[in-house]
Design a protein around this nucleic acid. Structure first.
Lengths: 207, 207
DNA sequence: GTCTATAACCGGATAGAC
DNA sequence: GTCTATCCGGTTATAGAC
């Protein structure tokens, strides 16, 4: 028992995630979430008292997931080069499967920046490991000295931006060709990896 | 004659721009725009028939402006290196003054990607000049061969992302320090320029 | 052109039956 | 736990006076 309601709760969260990601907090309608979940509005309010509470739940889960993936990569890595390679590859892969998540997360975070504070307090972003990898390799003259924060932002930017800016990139490509865009994204992993490594490491592969 | 109403129309557009940028299409309220413009709701509908029409006007103007700046830089440039230097510098400068515009434009464009089609048809993005600069320099062995579209996306990503992701970047920096963020942005121009040039050009300045 | 007042509608939330 | 019916506030849009 409790099976039925847990299923319903899950159905609601899933539906809410879908609708919120697509429409944003302001654009989303409780009716649409209810329809998507195959139930009615009243039940939404029975499980989650308000639209805001439902949204907060969905957003926090999603944001945690996004950060968790990064943290996991950082955890695994033992050198900076290896971190960059696996992070770029896996992150682009991940976003490809949920291409609207970045715009959603970034937009809602700008709409309400306080949300991140609450989050950081009980999860933390912990970049210390990255800083350490950095320091080691700089001291050993493996990498040129660069600000770690700038590099982290660079990596995220190069990975995430192509998805947030999809309409513009398709604008660059004459003919509105979805396949061309997909091809572009597929090229990104190796392009970004190469791009960063050529800046960062002494003696990059070179003709 | 015509003066009063043109002033009113301008006041409305200005107010609408402000509110739409901050709240987005869905979050914006006609009442708030009216208040901001110092008039009442009815007058909004007198000048622009609907919220949608007002939004479209504002968005298109804003988007045109953003693209125009890029086009102007491309127009002026005679070498790729020079283009990158002035584009990065001026674009980051421009966004610094209107830091919420990128999130607004990207979000609304994702909400309604068809908008860009309409735009491109009567303005165009014309990347041919960039392609030409590229080809020249690659042939003359000034730059390593890289896909032009990827590079354009890289430049935009490195410039724009730090603004869209402001809350996250502030999350990286323990202590919620606005000044620290400002400093970070100020460093960006030289960082991004150096980053790209080191990848792109043969014999970059090096110790 | 600009205002006040109001229509018409929509969407989040609640009451209460089952 | 789930439903139908309904409330109520807010929001876009219009009517009509000035």
């Amino acid at each position: 028992m409790g099976n039925t309601n847990e299923n319903t709760e899950l159905k609601i969260i899933e539906a809410a995630r879908k609708v919120f990601i697509l429409k944003g907090m302001d654009g989303a309608r409780m009716q649409e979430i209810a329809d998507e979940a195959g139930i009615n509005k009243a039940l939404l309010h029975y499980y989650f008292r308000s639209k805001t509470k439902l949204f907060d739940r969905v957003f926090l889960e999603l944001f945690s997931e996004v950060v968790a993936v990064i943290n996991a990569e950082v955890e695994k890595a033992s050198t900076l080069e290896q971190l960059i390679e696996s992070l770029v590859s896996n992150y682009i892969q991940l976003i490809s499967e949920k291409p609207f998540v970045p715009d959603f997360v970034l937009h809602e975070l700008n709409r309400n920046p306080e949300m991140i504070i609450e989050y950081i307090q009980h999860k933390g972003l912990d970049l210390n490991k990255v800083f350490r990898l950095f320091q080691d390799e700089t001291l050993n003259h493996v990498t040129y000295p660069i600000s770690p924060v700038h590099l982290i932002v660079d990596v995220l930017a190069l990975c995430v931006f192509p998805f947030v800016a999809k309409p513009i990139i398709k604008g660059f490509m004459l003919e509105d060709d979805e396949l061309k865009y997909k091809k572009f994204i597929a090229e990104r992993v190796s392009h970004v990896t190469g791009f960063i490594k050529s800046t960062l490491f002494i003696n990059p592969q070179q003709s």
